[in-house]
């Protein structure tokens, strides 16, 4: 992941074309956009679903989330959402935290938290969908 390694594997031209001067800027930029585009329909689906289930009982909510199509859409949304969130928070940290050590620690914690919470949420969706009504 270090710049030395990536410069070892890539020619200067491919580095300039694919990743830019900041090692991984282009990849970050594009991932932020792809997840944003994916989230537009997924979030609209989610908001409509949530509005329709305000105050829903446990059984009704389980039935909604557990339906195969909904479970897949929810899992996809959670994956895109947490990936998008950690990319955005990384930029915020890079902009405002200038002490090198603190910056790296905060970014690693953010990415780790996004992975853990996203994983937990997707696990919950799978349990709801596959585990039957508890």
């Amino acid at each position: 992941m270090s710049s030395e390694q990536s410069s070892g594997r890539r020619s200067p031209l491919s580095r300039a074309r694919g990743l830019g001067s900041a090692r991984s800027g282009t990849t970050h930029f594009l991932s932020q956009r792809w997840t944003a585009i994916a989230l537009v329909p997924l979030i609209i689906w989610f908001v409509i679903g949530i509005i329709a289930h305000i105050g829903a009982s446990h059984v009704v909510a389980m039935t909604w989330v557990g339906r195969p199509l909904n479970a897949v859409l929810m899992a996809l949304m959670l994956g895109a959402l947490f990936h998008h969130a950690q990319l955005g928070l990384q930029v915020v940290i890079e902009d405002y935290v200038h002490a090198h050590g603190a910056k790296i620690i905060l970014i690693v914690l953010t990415k780790g938290a996004a992975l853990i919470f996203g994983g937990l949420a997707i696990f919950a969706v799978l349990r709801i969908s596959l585990g039957g009504v508890a």
Partner: peptide, 8 residues
């Protein structure tokens, strides 16, 4: 979601 998965 976790609360929902854990039960009523």
């Amino acid at each position: 979601l976790l609360a929902m998965a854990a039960g009523p």
